[in-house]
Design a protein around this nucleic acid. Structure first.
Lengths: 346, 346
DNA sequence: CTGTTAGCGCTTTCAG
DNA sequence: CTGAAAGCGCTAACAG
């Protein structure tokens, strides 16, 4: 349809800006201006151009534009898993904050491995993002180097890395888990158990576990009741299996804290299946305040984290640097809030 | 650091291919070849180049490359929500299938509105993806037009649109819900109720509802027990509120089918909270086979959908067209499987 | 307000 | 196996 005067056969190529310009009887530059907000183009000209744009179904080629303007309009974000509502919330926060800026999100997930993260970082840097958001502070040396030579702002989230690359938006998982222990200790529980994954690739999980151990020690409570089960992220099902193991080894455990609400929910359901009463026979708590924790029965005590806010704030920090409001004034650290939410499971 | 011989001040620009070429003592073209798989470059030259690449921390600029090669290496995918494990699974399927091809995913979510979808489609087309995957068959007219003039393969998923744009990878939500009704009717349930969202913006939800109504009619069972509650996607909490409404209006309902497992889970927990026995007092079923449905107590009867497979197959269809294996041979429709999973809740 | 010229960083194409 | 020239589609910079 249309688009004649070409030596090529029928195949309809996507129209270019020159095609629009020709049709509107102006130069390509004027078309470029008309399609950009806040450029001075006369109303009549703009209307002619818009008509041509609509007739041709023209869509700006941003790759070409960004090569010229040296701004790609991309922001990269890397999360451990997309299939985890905590991180999905963070991704949503990033997108929402980006929406009004015209920046577009390049999202990737690492499956909780730094090797995949490194590959992803490299793949994304090939797209020349104007900033990048990472989860956690554990990265390969090569990834750190690539990030540094990229010369773009970096925000690490969800933790407080001991060796931050650039900016940080997060909280101490150790302290948050410690707070949960102390809150429950105050209610009278003494024999605490912990359920988490087996490897240390989930650094937030490791930090929570450390926070648990340290808090138990500080309070002078019985130590050692740690069950590691499954490769992180540990699932609902694995939470159920883990508590079986816990009950076999330490049947007199009074309260079980889990690395996340998903494992806590699995543990809770397994207990109910076995006819145990929660919290009378055993108390269970999780981490992350997933929707399931709030609405299951009994509701699960947990630590609420501002996942969405982490995303928004991380994106906001990036935008401020990208849009040049501030000239990257050193390593900013934004602490995000968390709070223990007590429910019927404890 | 390094990178002298420039008139510009200290600020370290990202190195370009010319910088690498200079350092390695070859032409830019040879660097380009060395960085591309399966190109003939002598071992010695390649080593020199790789050394220079590493020293400079060089990363290929794919925007520039794709402008020249007319291949962006992008595939776009649009889902209703990223924070829904069914769609997250589909997104994961797409990414996994794409991984070996070097294609990169541009992911966006619509919040279940066709208006946001249209904007997203336009934003993504500006990046010149080589193919695009959509959820469902409801789109604005303008979105359809944009898609057509883009001249790229399109795959609609999760439904069987009556007016497909191009390819389809999905299943009939109507039939799937009908199958669930029939399965439960066979167990003796007669008075069926349905819980779903209020508007029709969730087209899959509407289709499931239609499938429910039609199956009930076909079986000659009591009709009309439909509760609409909340704007889709209806949450766990709203599922709980909806069943309260159901019980008030039709207290003798025997089995409640919900538009998704999330609302079913909410309904189930609300029943337990009220001391009702499931399935003795009331049976509950969901849709989607979310992890929570499998491991809650009692387990929730549901319809398992191959979410991950939808993603993989959709991506595979796209890749085949993109990589030119087949010249877009008309409207392909791939039917994906589903099956009723009976658990203790019915 | 509009046009012209140049060039972004890479790859295609054609020579060697 | 390597290089030189040309140009992808757009926008910065300058001119008018």
């Amino acid at each position: 349809m249309g688009k004649a005067a070409s030596s090529r056969p029928i195949e309809s190529q996507a129209p270019t800006m020159a095609d629009v310009a020709l049709r509107a009887g102006v130069s390509a530059m004027t078309v470029s201006r008309a399609l950009k907000e806040g450029s001075r183009v006369s109303k009549a000209t703009r209307e002619k151009i818009m008509a041509a744009v609509n007739e041709l179904g023209y869509v700006l080629d941003q790759s070409a534009g960004s090569l010229s303007s040296r701004k790609t309009g991309f922001v990269a974000a890397i999360v451990p898993s997309i299939n985890n509502s905590n991180f999905a919330d963070t991704a949503r926060g990033i997108t929402d904050e980006l929406e009004s800026t015209g920046l577009q999100l390049l999202l990737g997930y690492t499956d909780y491995t730094v090797e995949k993260e490194e590959k992803l970082i490299e793949a994304m840097l090939r797209r020349r993002p104007e900033g990048i958001i990472l989860t956690g502070g554990a990265h390969t040396e090569r990834a750190r180097k690539l990030l540094k030579s990229a010369g773009i702002p970096v925000v690490e989230t969800w933790e407080l890395p001991s060796k931050p690359i650039d900016q940080v938006v997060g909280f101490s998982n150790e302290e948050a888990m410690g707070l949960l222990v102390k809150t429950l200790a105050r209610k009278g529980y003494r024999k605490f158990g912990y359920i988490g994954g087996t490897t240390s690739r989930d650094t937030r999980g490791s930090q929570r576990r450390e926070g648990f151990v340290r808090a138990i020690e500080e309070l002078g409570l019985p130590t050692g009741r740690l069950v590691s089960f499954g490769v992180p992220p540990i699932s609902i099902e694995q939470g159920g299996q883990a508590i079986v193991s816990m009950l076999e080894r330490w049947p007199d455990t009074e309260a079980v804290l889990c690395v996340s609400d998903l494992s806590a929910f699995g543990a809770l359901m397994e207990c109910k299946r076995r006819g145990m009463k929660v919290p009378q026979d055993i108390a269970i708590a999780g981490f992350g305040d997933y929707e399931v924790a709030a609405f299951c029965h009994p509701g699960i005590t947990t630590v609420n984290v501002d996942c969405y806010g982490i995303g928004r704030q991380a994106a906001r920090r990036l935008i401020q640097v990208i849009r040049g409001a501030e000239k990257k004034q050193g390593q900013e650290i934004v602490l995000t809030g968390y709070r223990v939410v007590e429910r019927e499971s404890t």
